Computed example of a mutant assay.
Amino acid sequence: MNTPRRLLLAVSALSMLASPLVHAQAWPQQKPIRIIVTFSPGGSSDIVARLLQPGLQEKLGQTVIVENKPGAGSTIGANEVARAAPDGYTLLLSNTAPMSISPFMMDKAPYDPVKGFTHIAYIGSVPNVFVVHPSVPAKTMPELVKWINAQARPVNYGSGGVGSIGHIVGEMFKQQYQLKMEHVPYKGSSPMHNDLLGGSLQFAVDTLTQNVPFMKEGKLVGIAVTSRARAPMSPTVPTVGEAGYPKLVAENFLGISGPAGTPADVVDKVNKAVTDVVARPDVARRLSDLGVESEPMSAAQFTRFVTDQVNEWAPAVKASGARLN
């Protein structure tokens, strides 16, 4: 074989060997990054994803697209991410519903909430709130229980959807206190509020974030928040513990996860970008206004956090009897 031919083959072989390294180093330059939100527009997950979007674009130097993929208790969007290529271009706005709740409402979950993902960055947690239409003669949890028990028919309670944390907390409330209640699932908080504000739905368990504006205007009444401490964005509303219902403590976490096997360098870049954006004074202030309590976590810490959440919620979800058909 002549020398030019040998040289050409050698260069070609080196190029093939180097291509994975070049590909890895190029992230995220090849194409836009998608962040899948498992709820409809207008919910807390969607609001937070869009709040972080501009800063993440700036930090990562690539377009970031937020896509809403609701349905099946948040498992449709989560499963899309779990099955995606682990290349850093498809990420999940992970939260309590698809990680800690919905998989345990199914005979066979489509993914493992811990092993099926690479959990990358923690954003924060937000409580839910027991909220009623002003026509309901209840301002406290004991009064709410008394009102429910006084009704001739089961009281409908709304949530952002089957498998949402509001759904499970409502079922826990129903079972623990033997109340006559029926769950009415909605495809997100926005459509639920149409009925709740109109009075055709009188009671809901929902993320605090999107209810505070209505509570401030007197259009809805916040009965109790499900956090351990009062929420800074609604300090006059007592906690479920203060109200005498400590077993109802529950917070919805928000984070960024990717498919299992996402490269370590991508994980590091995304974790740093999320941490930096969340720490910006304007973003931190907006998150606080939304009721999101945040703290920095490494990817390893966030993975342990999700694992703990799964271990804590799985028995409660199974005990609630709530199912995803």
Score class of each variant (00 low, 15 high):
Pro137Arg: 10
Glu242His: 06
Tyr122Asp: 03
Leu92Asn: 08
Gln202Cys: 04
Asn68Asp: 09
Glu217Gly: 00
Ile148Val: 14
Pro296Trp: 04
Ala279Leu: 03
Pro70Asp: 11
Tyr89Glu: 09
Ala109Asp: 01
Gly55Leu: 05
Ala229Met: 08
Ala78Ser: 09
Gly244Ile: 08
Glu251Ser: 15
Val132Gly: 07
Thr75Val: 13
Lys216Gln: 14
Glu80Gly: 03
Lys187Cys: 02
Asn271Gln: 14
Glu295Tyr: 05
Thr90Ser: 14
Val129Tyr: 08
Arg5Cys: 00
Ser164Thr: 14
Thr38Ser: 15
Asp46Phe: 01
Gly73Asp: 09
Ile165Ser: 14
Gly244Phe: 05
Glu143Tyr: 02
Ser320Gly: 06
Ala229Asn: 12
Thr140Phe: 04
Pro296Cys: 09
Ser45Val: 02
Ile168Lys: 07
Ala109Gly: 06
Pro263Gly: 12
Ser44Asp: 10
Val162Leu: 15
Leu93His: 12
Pro191Lys: 12
Ala224Arg: 10
Thr209His: 07
Ala314Val: 01
Gly170Glu: 08
Leu287Glu: 04
Phe173Asp: 11
Ala284Ile: 06
Gly241Gln: 13
Thr96His: 14
Glu58Phe: 00
Met105Leu: 03
Val11Cys: 12
Val37Met: 12
Arg83Val: 07
Asn95Asp: 08
Lys108Asn: 11
Gly198Cys: 08
Leu51Met: 13
Thr90Pro: 00
Val212Cys: 14
Pro232Phe: 08
Ser102Cys: 10
Ser135Met: 06
Pro263Glu: 08
Val81Ser: 09
Pro263His: 04
Gln178Ser: 11
Ser298Ala: 08
Leu21Tyr: 10
Ala229Pro: 00
Gly43Ala: 13
Ile47Arg: 10
